[in-house]
């Protein structure tokens, strides 16, 4: 085909409420950060276009609400997802403990054809807080968890300081593209 094909990837962002999902998205898409916390109700959607190698890719990012009362949205929201971004707050142990739950629930609801190969990524957010002194989840602990879940790529990020946010989303987009190519074959 002579015209370059555009690819659209559906990206689901999951994690406990308050870990910074919306802030990461705002930083990534709008290059903005706000201290004010506003809970996401239901879901928010943003799009971001990027070029990966020779390919134009549009990320359709689904920013879901962390609160449990919105979890009934499940299947429909996860249907047809190309990849999933898990987020926790390095300063809150509970948000890390919930990762198992988010990961398993996603696979259950989205029901991808090959769950083991489904592209996930883990972001440990808010590394800027208190110069890292209030941190309760070590990088090693997070990396061990990733290894136990089939070598999920891991990034330590700060939505506020814009640390590694672009890298993380580029990584997940590439993983999703690679996964798509496998499925096409």
């Amino acid at each position: 085909m002579s015209t370059r094909r555009r690819t659209l990837l559906k990206v689901i962002v999951l994690g406990d409420s308050g870990v910074g999902k919306t802030s990461l998205m705002n930083q990534y898409v709008h290059k903005k950060f706000s201290q004010q916390y506003k809970a996401t109700i239901g879901a928010d959607f943003v799009t971001k276009e990027l070029q990966i190698d020779d390919k134009l890719v549009t990320l359709q990012i689904w920013d879901t609400a962390g609160q449990e009362r919105f979890q009934s949205l499940g299947v429909a929201f996860y249907r047809g997802a190309d990849c999933c971004v898990l987020v926790y707050d390095v300063n809150v142990m509970k948000s890390f403990d919930s990762l198992d739950n988010w990961h398993d629930e996603f696979l259950k609801q989205a029901n991808p054809p090959d769950p083991k190969a489904f592209p996930f990524i883990l972001l440990g957010n808010k590394i800027d807080i208190d110069g890292g002194n209030s941190r309760v989840v070590s990088e090693k602990k997070a990396r061990d968890w990733c290894a136990s879940r089939g070598n999920i790529p891991y990034f330590e990020t700060s939505a506020k300081e814009n640390i590694r946010v672009d890298d993380a989303f580029l990584c997940i987009a590439k993983a999703a593209l690679a996964n798509e190519r496998e499925q096409d074959m």
């Binding site: 659209l8 959607f45 943003v46 799009t47 549009t58 359709q60 499940g74 429909a76």
Partner: peptide, 23 residues
């Protein structure tokens, strides 16, 4: 269409939300 991906997601969410029989 690609720039409207967010809007498109919103439409799907509305349809699916009702279809799922919210709560």
């Amino acid at each position: 269409e690609h720039k409207l991906a967010g809007f498109s997601a919103t439409l799907q969410a509305i349809i699916s939300f009702v279809e799922n029989g919210y709560a």
